[in-house]
Amino acid sequence: MIHTLRVGSPGSRVIRHSGPGGLRFPAFTGSGFHIVLHGTCWLVSEDEEPVALEPGDVVLTTCGTEHGLSRTPCALAELPPVVMGPFPPAPGPFDFEFLCGSYRLDHGRVPQYLRTLPGLIVVSGRPGRHPELQALVALLRRDTTGTGMGAGATRPALQDLILVHALRRWHEQHDDAAPWPTTGDPGVDAALRAMHQNPGRQWTVAQLGDLAGMSRTAFSRRFAGVVGQPPKGYLIRCRLAHGARLLRETDATLATIARRIGYSTEFAFSSAFRREYGTSPSHFRVGGRPARRNGI
């Protein structure tokens, strides 16, 4: 998941707010987080009740869901949109201050793993609970607001670590240790498990339906309703995510990786990979990413 997000454009920024109201963050393609540094505020969303936040709390925006941070509980539509850009924090007194980090994906999609999680996740990071996370936040804040040598190189790495630690804390709280998504539907979960355990197999929808104990048509309808996309589309993204891990974690050739994840040729794998991630497998392997854009 981290390797996939690194294809995007990472950025971080400290924001301060004073007075009533707050700020609204429009939906975007990517993932990000907010960390409350000082003061108290409320997480506001379209469909859920406002959530009170205190210093140290982390809000994960898993799939770029529209949301807001406000001095008091309110409707999301009441908040003005934040002005995007690499601006320094506002001077003078403030009611609350928070650190933002984001991965904006100019190409491709948010990793499937993140799309299976709630759109907004709150992780308590209050003093004394998670010292490692607090240390990482302090380092990112220092690099985000400073101009020291090497700050531009360390910020993406610190964002990665903060995201990993925050997700780890959330999974610990929810006792979710499965290495693949689970839906609560036994038939769909059996098919998901099979695809993730053996992404290179030439699965057919009928075979997956048999594992789920359903007909091909009934399984396709159930899977799309529960997961949000057809079985074949999910399998393709599962294969490509596995291929992305092999590119970064092994020295296997493109042809070898293609065969391992179910593609008959290196060309077919490269074409599918470029459509999904917006870059070639070779460029992805060496850590390349599209040109960075301004923004938080």
Results as ranks from 00 to 15, higher is better:
P89S: 04
L211W: 11
G128Q: 08
F219E: 00
G19T: 12
A291M: 08
F94R: 00
L133C: 07
G92D: 04
G150C: 00
A77Y: 00
P281E: 08
A272C: 12
R109G: 03
D47I: 09
V59N: 10
H242Y: 06
R169A: 13
I15P: 01
L69T: 04
H165S: 09
G30A: 08
G125R: 06
V7T: 15
P127T: 05
V83Q: 06
A272W: 02
R168A: 15
V123Y: 05
Y103S: 05
C100A: 14
T65I: 05
G152D: 11
H17W: 14
A191K: 01
D251W: 01
H67V: 05
L5W: 07
F284Y: 13
G228L: 13
S70V: 05
L69C: 05
D106Y: 13
T183A: 11
T250P: 03
G262N: 01
T65E: 15
P231R: 01
R16K: 10
P26S: 12
V164T: 12
R289F: 02
A151D: 14
A241W: 02
G8Y: 03
H130M: 01
T72M: 03
A157I: 14
R141Q: 15
E54V: 08
G200D: 06
R104G: 05
L37G: 09
A194I: 00
R239N: 06
D57G: 02
L136T: 06
D210A: 15
V122D: 07
Q197E: 11
T217W: 06
F223Y: 12
G21P: 12
G21A: 03
P73W: 04
H107V: 09
F223M: 04
R237I: 12
A138T: 15
F94Y: 13
H107R: 15
R109K: 11
D95Q: 01
F96D: 05
R126G: 04
A166L: 00
L247E: 11
H171D: 13
L99R: 12
Q112V: 14
R239P: 07
A138N: 12
T116P: 03
F33C: 08
R6D: 01
A291C: 01
A75P: 00
P199M: 08
T217H: 15
E78K: 12
I162L: 13
D176S: 10
Y103E: 09
F269K: 08
I15S: 11
P231K: 03
D189N: 10
T250Q: 00
